[in-house]
């Protein structure tokens, strides 16, 4: 399947180039819409989705520096009101849904931001789809040039990666700009050391694929109130990294519980007087 797609891609690039020489024009990408049609049907039950209506926006690099850590940032403005969930989709990845976030009360209803890093396997549309409280879907899309993100060798330092698995780090930020917002928001970052093996990384010595092992669930709370609950897939980068806004509370203690597909549980809490 993926081999066929590659071949198609190559041919279309050659074609586009050849035409480009004569006409200065390029052919549109082949079959991109069909993939999204399937995802739309399978993941969103074919429900109507409003595109670029201002309820959500997405920042992604047009050309990724590293296909295995492509930063994506989603903004949800106060005008969107209450938002139930956010789904990140990478159309052409083997498992297109990168992650789904269900927001809790501590996510607030002001200007919201959530940022993470994903793997991108080939040139693809990347989508942020939010479901607002009224049950309507809204989407922002970006095209990203990157490839090989899912099969790229796991770690730059393979021993270090396994030795530190499960280590977590939580930071909170006190940016002046976000304090001035009404209602006020703060930012936090949750990082977890985890290889997030995609199951597509082959060990040539054993001729075996390293079995999939990913952080599948993560629950993030502020002073006991949920900010979001994440369900993750293989497209989330090694060492999953989430940065997000939340509504400040009294202590602003961030508490994280994560679980991977091996059933291992990881817990961490930010220092009390978060700086």
């Amino acid at each position: 399947m993926s081999a066929t797609r590659l071949t198609l891609g190559r041919i279309s690039r050659s074609l586009a180039l050849t035409l480009g020489i004569f006409a200065g024009a390029a052919l549109p990408a082949v079959a991109a819409d069909d993939i999204w049609k399937d995802i739309h049907r399978d993941v969103f039950a074919g429900k109507a989705i409003a595109e670029d209506d201002g309820a959500v926006s997405l920042e992604a690099p047009y050309r990724a520096e590293d296909a295995a850590i492509v930063p994506l940032t989603v903004h949800i403005p106060a005008s969107a009101g209450e938002v139930k969930s956010l789904t990140l989709v990478v159309d052409k990845n083997p498992a297109p849904v990168a992650a789904t976030f269900e927001f809790g009360e501590a996510a607030g209803k002001g200007d919201r931001m959530l940022s993470t890093r994903v793997r991108i396997d080939m040139y693809s549309n990347v989508r942020a789809v939010v479901e607002t409280a009224d049950g309507k879907l809204h989407m922002a899309t970006k095209f990203v040039k990157a490839s090989g993100g899912c099969s790229a060798a796991a770690s730059k330092d393979a021993d270090e990666a396994l030795a530190s698995l499960g280590k977590m780090q939580i930071r909170t930020f006190d940016a002046d700009a976000s304090k001035e917002q009404t209602p006020p928001v703060r930012e936090a970052q949750v990082m977890i050391r985890h290889p997030n093996f995609t199951g597509m990384q082959m060990d040539q010595v054993t001729r075996q694929y390293t079995p999939m092992r990913i952080v599948s669930e993560m629950d993030v709370k502020r002073d006991g109130a949920r900010i979001f609950k994440m369900e993750g897939g293989i497209s989330i980068s090694e060492n999953p990294n989430f940065r997000f806004t939340f509504v400040p509370g009294t202590d602003n203690v961030i508490e994280v519980t994560a679980k991977d597909t091996e059933g291992q549980i990881f817990n961490a809490t930010s220092a009390k007087k978060a700086s």
Binding site: R13, L15, A16, L17, T18, I21, A67, K145, A146, G148
Partner: peptide, 28 residues
């Protein structure tokens, strides 16, 4: 061009040639 993949591209030596796209994939 279809037969030989993209000999025209390589002859062109343009930074935006398709081989560049493929190469971008190799960053690591």
């Amino acid at each position: 061009a279809l037969l030989f993949h993209s000999p025209l591209a390589t002859a062109q030596e343009s930074p935006s040639a398709p081989s560049g796209d493929a190469q971008r994939a190799t960053e690591d």
